[in-house]
Design a protein around this nucleic acid. Structure first.
Length: 428
RNA sequence: GGUGGGGUACUCAAGUGGCCAACGAGAUCAGACUGUAAAUCUGACGGCGCAAGCCUUCGAAGGUUCGAAUCCUUCCCCCACCA
């Protein structure tokens, strides 16, 4: 991750990666003129970022690699208001302690992507530092005065909500974001704000404020909205939940698997968006997808690269090994104790605790499926079994019990639900 | 505060006294086909149960009735318009 001195590079880099949605006209000149300090805001609505936040994060990374200064703003203050952009309904407000804790957790995650040393050292700021002490009168005089209601109503984020209603609080959100930009412009010399394409309206409100309040010149850049080829929303795991960057919420193995499952039609784009691989490397993988898609070379490279960056190279290698054990090994009977221990921390794991033992030397698999969280109820587990969706130790299961003599190493069962969900059961 | 419209399972959305665990669609899950892909086809999709069946659900609480998601009363919430 060495910083170069080519200050005009980021736009070209973002362009070939198809990460450029729109930007203000003067931006190329600003990059060419010298080091630019740019920021992206992150909402502390959860205690972890998720893969949907990766594009703006990578935007900061590319900027830094080109010798500019990245800054991440955690919305500890604005998070208490709620951004109406891209939402059809009013947000629920979260309490202060939660937001504070979330902001801190997000800070730690961002720290993994950016370099905090050197001439283009990254910085992290929290807008709670200036918004929470801002007085209403001061805000209305110095900021509100610069915006007409007409201007605000014309913004998409507001316009789309007029039908169903928008609170005064959320209506004001864009002014707070504009205020942030002005504040950072003054304090830190920030001249670029980046964000998702739905942020364009809020960002340009900031440009407006900087120009009117200060006569300053600043820029905007937005990233495209990431879509999946099949029309579903990017960033949902097969279970439907978000894919988080926090290892506690989404294990490195699950994270790795999320990328392994990328659609052929998406994987080339994702390599561009989410890895730092060179154009040549990526084009070679594109070719691999065309000539031998079954090998999944691009998915493997994508999964390893992103997992290594978000978690660690060690975690990525472990995920790789576990994936090989689970998906490429014909006979789980030969798994060593060490392999079983490795599996235990990567896939669903539960200790078998029978409610009503069917027989002394048998395991009630329906109950085990519930213990492992692979089925919500006994009825659901039964349906899975009836439909042939359950395998134990690599063999399709036909009856709801398994004899003890089939336990791996005398004490484990490797249970598979469907094509790719695994659980390890420990039988005491 | 007034008037009108609305709150049905994960989401959208039918249903206006029994045929309703509740049409349909999407999402989700599984099977076949495959490549841990896509598309397609098939099945499942409140809980318990081998089953018959039982239990819990239609904003909340009461009531009418042999019987309610459907009728009545009160309350809560959302939306629109008016004040």
């Amino acid at each position: 991750m060495s910083a170069t001195t080519n200050t005009s590079a980021p736009l070209e880099e973002l362009a070939w990666r198809e990460l450029l949605h729109q930007h203000t006209d003067g931006l190329p000149a600003a990059f060419a003129a010298g080091q630019v300090t740019a920021y992206v805001g992150f909402d502390p609505t959860a205690s972890s970022l998720h893969v949907g936040n990766l594009v703006p994060i990578m935007g900061l990374v590319h900027l830094q690699r080109a010798g500019h200064r990245p800054m991440a703003l955690v919305g500890g203050g604005t998070g208490m208001i709620g951004d109406p952009s891209g939402r059809s309904s009013e947000r629920n407000l979260q309490d202060l302690d939660t937001i504070r804790a979330n902001a801190e957790a997000i800070r730690r995650q961002l720290a993994k992507f950016l370099d905090f040393e050197g001439p283009s050292a990254a910085r992290l700021v929290n807008n709670a530092d200036w918004l929470c002490s801002l007085s209403l009168i001061e805000f209305l005089r110095d900021t509100g005065k610069h915006f007409s209601v007409n201007y605000m109503m014309a913004k998409d984020s507001v316009k789309s909500r007029l039908e169903n209603g928008i609170s005064y609080t959320e209506f004001t959100y864009m002014l707070l974001q504009a205020f942030d930009y002005l504040e950072l412009h003054r304090r830190e010399g920030v001249t670029l704000q980046m964000g998702g394409s739905d942020q364009w309206g809020n960002i340009t409100a900031g440009l407006e404020l900087i120009r009117k309040a200060q006569g300053g010149d600043a820029h905007a850049l937005t990233f495209p909205l990431i879509t999946n080829a099949d029309g579903t929303k990017f960033g949902k795991s097969t279970g439907g939940g978000s894919v988080w960057l926090d290892a506690e919420r989404t294990s490195p193995y699950q994270f790795y698997q999320f990328w392994m499952g990328a659609d052929d039609r998406d994987v080339s784009r994702y390599l561009r968006f989410y890895t730092l691989m060179s154009r040549e490397e990526i084009e070679a993988l594109d070719e691999a997808v065309r000539s031998d898609p079954g090998k999944r070379a691009a998915q493997r490279a994508l999964a390893y690269d992103v997992t290594a960056r978000v978690h660690s190279p060690d975690a990525a290698r472990a995920a790789q090994e576990v994936s090989a054990l689970l998906f490429e090994r014909a006979d789980p009977a030969g798994l060593s104790d060490a392999a079983l221990t490795a599996l235990r921390s990567e896939i669903r794991f539960a200790a078998y605790a029978p409610v009503a033992q069917p027989a002394m030397d048998e395991v009630d698999v329906l109950h085990a499926l519930q213990l492992l969280g692979l089925a919500d109820s006994r009825g659901a587990a039964k349906r899975l079994l009836e439909q042939g969706g359950i395998s134990v130790n690599g063999e399709k299961l036909a009856q709801p019990t398994v004899r003890h003599d089939r336990l791996l190493r005398g004490r484990h069962l490797l249970i598979k639900k469907g094509q790719r969900e695994f659980g390890l059961l420990h039988v005491p």
